[in-house]
Write a protein that binds this DNA or RNA. Structure first.
Length: 281
DNA sequence: GTGTCATGCGTAT
DNA sequence: TACGCCTGACACG
């Protein structure tokens, strides 16, 4: 079981939009599903709950939107929402010391999961899990049968800017501030266009683009929306860090397609970015 | 060292 | 609309 020192990679997962949680569920599930876990809370804020879970077998990990659920053999389910700051680390032996703010530490002999800074971390029963899931709109990474139509239907009733609607987790679960700007750029829609004034084809295109981009983000572990040809590259893997996005945080920089300067403005307290030429009002 | 900002969201006013 | 909550990176003096 001895591992070379440099293989103890601390896989930090950032950017807590939906793709991060689905990726976390997949990667963590491979390591922990079906195992009896040692569970503790070095920080102390989850101590009672950790005792309740300690020694139980984890049955499954699943995600919807930005929420992730760990169902144990007792049917107790740990529910985590990372918020802005929450971070996971997956460690291999020899395990590092947990940081003082480590809310939850889950271990087998082979793997350690370190969770710090979550917005929410609590144990739910089956009914409470259903309540959380029911609050969430269709998730493009799950993309279940009928979700596309459901999304179009929900959006079509909203007389609010589409830039606001996209952040409403009840309309579509998993999109955050980065994907909001990127998806609207990709389909050429200005963030202030009213959701209910977009035609069904455009809303369908928005759903399809969300499916494609969030699934790609889940696979790669980061948000990369730029088509390589728009920056003179051959494939996405050749893009540098600063080349990966079209609009997000690029105000004052030229659009990658038309060179118009990217603009930004506050929508409900969060910045949104767009190209005034590619996304006409 | 201090202040600010951030890829989120719930509650109070 | 404001605030509180969770934390870390960065700019600034």
């Amino acid at each position: 079981m001895l591992a070379p020192v440099d293989s103890n990679s601390q896989k930090k997962m950032r950017m807590p939009e939906g793709h991060v949680l689905h990726r976390a569920a997949r990667l963590q599930g491979k390591r922990f599903n079906g195992h009896a876990l040692s569970v503790s809370s070095p920080q102390g804020r989850f101590s009672d709950e950790a005792k309740q879970l300690d020694g139980q077998t984890l049955e499954t990990i699943f995600a919807k939107g930005k929420h992730i659920f760990y169902r144990f053999e007792s049917d107790d389910t740990m529910h985590v929402h990372l918020g802005l700051f929450g971070k996971y680390r997956l460690n291999k032996p020899p395990f590092p010391e947990p940081s003082p703010n480590c809310r939850v530490l889950m271990e087998t002999d082979e793997n350690q999961l370190h969770l710090a800074g979550p917005n929410q971390c609590r144990i739910l029963d089956a009914g409470e899990v259903d309540d959380v899931l029911a609050r969430l709109g269709p998730d493009p990474i799950i993309n279940a049968s009928g979700d596309r139509e459901e999304f179009i239907s929900r959006m079509h009733k909203k007389k609010v800017p589409v830039g606001r609607a996209l952040m409403d987790q009840n309309l579509m679960a998993g999109v955050g501030n980065v994907y909001r700007s990127e998806l609207l750029f990709q389909i050429g829609v200005h963030p202030w266009r009213k959701a209910n004034e977009l035609d069904p084809e455009t809303l369908g295109e928005l759903w399809d683009q969300s499916v494609a981009e969030l699934k790609a983000g889940e696979r790669v572990g980061k948000i990369v929306t730029v088509e390589p040809s728009d920056v003179g590259a051959q494939k996405r893997s050749e893009l540098t860090k600063t080349e990966s996005l079209y609009a997000y945080k690029r105000h004052g920089d030229p659009c990658r397609r038309c060179e118009t300067l990217i603009r930004h403005a506050d929508i409900d307290g969060r910045n949104a970015w767009w190209c005034p030429t590619c996304q006409p009002k």
